[in-house]
Nucleic acid binder design. Structure first.
Lengths: 343, 343
DNA sequence: ACTGGCACTCTGGATGACGGAGTGCCAAGA
DNA sequence: TCTTGGCACTCCGTCATCCAGAGTGCCAGT
């Protein structure tokens, strides 16, 4: 705020114009070209003075003496924060999103379609996280006896996700016990949030005969494990071919980015940093992961109802169309949320 | 065969040397360098004559007058077919493969690890297909009543894969009927190949009361559908960052390749063309898909026992280390087969 | 505070010279 | 008949040079 006092409205307008032009042309933008394309109502010389100030403050940068100016990360940051609005999707675009996602047949398909759609809309790399288990509720728990001592646990969540686990029981469990356990599990845990379940089922073994308690405990601990497991969170990416649209900084930047995108861990951390509510934009060096230092990440949470169950976003060059990208990301996130709520 | 009569042993040796050198250096290879690095026992002039013949026959090619020679697709083909052997993995490498894959905890993990491993070993893009449903057998079928008229079908295969389907029944089904159906399904279909199942269950509705037959039929048709569904075949890729190791032909070739790799359909077709037994190498223009015209694909089937359940392979530049790549692909495929058989 | 003018700087592309690597061919030798 | 050394030739990649264009910073004038 203190620094920005030095920047009057026109200087901000100049910065805005620089960002817009640079995003369009991908080339350093000079004072003359600026006044031609935006009607700033002043002469190039004046703009040059403003540019000098902006450069002093670190918002723009000159690749070489006597070249045009390029926004810095800090410049983009100011642009995103104060100089622009999220650009809403047009009606046609919204309809396209709807018709594309409406045809999804199951959760996998929703995620797959979302990532494709987002990549197409933004022409960048899309990243979509599967709805996480930890925030969902239990729809159903099923137990299947494979052998007397081996039981398969199938967990069905409200987002339509299915998890299965094999359990080796210390003792044989009869079908009666299994049916009893099954019905108790579903009565108590059905519809409950994952976090609540362990507490709710804590004293369940006591309801069973001593000889069966070992097996019951084994089932429970496997269930809790499955519920708690964060590592199962999956991220799907798409549109990596869009990376090649920048013949520019090639292949200097593309290799680390591709590597980052293949690392589930990195992606999860990336999306994990997104606040539950509101959109997050991380620009260049604001990204903790080094390989993404020359990219920006726009991400947002999505969910059924008012609950955030996962995140999605896009990765692109710092020189990206922020308003458009943010609009697309937000629109897609909202629509996916609706779909999840409906199904 | 007819053409090859013109190629005596030394000419073939020259071709082999050219391929090996070019793969190593990535630069057109000349006669002088050839005789220095391989002891061919003849002079550069002689080699030049041989090269002229090889070029006439279309095995090598000269980028420009007075440049070295580069193998053509046809040249690589001859090299792979007749001039080299699959290079077996060293003991250390085999142990590494084993220890890496042995830590896999479930099917997803096996596939994920395999794709990583293959990408690392070959330093190229790895492609692994999930074990296909159609060749597997049924381990267990589970029916879960969600509401009186909604049933969830869970299908567990011998490869550890789980498929679920929601079924809306025309009439309410009681738990007794469901239990009956469940046990009949498992008795008749358990352990059977997918293809056999429809025949085996064909007359199942007749065993039930008339009022329940609608529901039974609904369940059966969903089950058959899930069994038949080929579209569920999934392909996982990894190591796409390796594409950037060819700063050479950039980004001309990389973009279409990345696009191809994101298209499940293309990948499935690619792997689908692999013969069930034996390794397949498709070189450059031998690939039907245009975007892969400057890449080679080495693929092979893998499976538990002697049955091929899916394919895996790698995609790389035509200029690749064929013996090494083929060795790695074969070794990994074998080991994955063993793991699947054991679990 | 803005503007026009001016000298200066730097890049990117074009041009041309040059060394090096590689070839093809020929005549001589095994 | 096959191989070899020699030789003239071709072409690429690199480097240095040059030039026009774009852009800047500064200054003096309004």
């Amino acid at each position: 705020m203190l620094e920005e006092r030095k920047l009057d409205d026109r200087k901000l307008a100049v910065l805005r114009a620089i960002v817009q032009d640079y995003v369009g042309t991908e080339e350093p933008v000079g004072s003359k070209a600026l006044v031609e394309r935006h009607n700033l109502g002043v002469s190039p010389a004046t703009v040059r003075n403003d540019m000098a100030t902006l450069e002093d403050e670190g918002y723009i940068h000159q690749p070489h003496t006597s070249a045009g100016r390029v926004p810095t990360d800090k410049g983009y940051r100011l642009f995103v924060d104060r100089l622009t609005e999220v650009k809403p999707m047009s009606g046609a675009e919204r309809r396209a999103i709807g018709s594309f996602l409406d045809h999804a047949v199951d959760l996998d398909d929703v995620v797959a379609r979302t990532v494709r759609l987002l990549a197409q809309l933004t022409r960048q790399v899309a990243v979509v996280q599967y709805p996480s288990l930890s925030r969902s509720t239990v729809r159903h728990v099923e137990l299947v006896a494979l052998t007397p001592t081996r039981v398969m646990l199938v967990l069905i969540t409200d987002t339509g996700r299915v998890e299965q686990r094999l359990i080796d029981c210390p003792t044989a469990v009869g079908e009666t016990v299994l049916a009893d356990l099954r019905s108790r599990l579903n009565t108590r845990a059905g519809g409950q949030r994952f976090v609540e379940v362990p507490t709710l089922l804590q004293d369940l073994p006591e309801a069973f005969d001593r000889e069966d308690r070992g097996a019951v405990t084994a089932v429970l601990s496997t269930l809790f494990e499955a519920l708690a497991e964060q590592t199962e969170e999956r991220v799907v990416i798409g549109g990596s071919a869009n990376l090649t649209r920048f013949p520019h900084d090639f292949p200097l930047t593309i290799a680390p980015v591709l590597e980052a995108l293949e690392e589930q861990v990195v992606l999860l951390k990336l999306l994990g940093e997104t606040a539950d509510a509101g959109m997050m934009v991380r620009i260049g060096h604001e990204n903790a992961y080094e390989g993404l230092n020359s990219t920006s990440v726009v991400s947002v949470g999505y969910g059924s109802g008012d609950e955030t169950v996962a995140k999605l976003g896009v990765v692109g060059p710092t020189r990206m169309d922020y308003p458009g990208t943010m609009g697309a990301v937000r629109a897609v996130a909202r629509y996916v949320g609706q779909i999840l709520a409906a199904s």
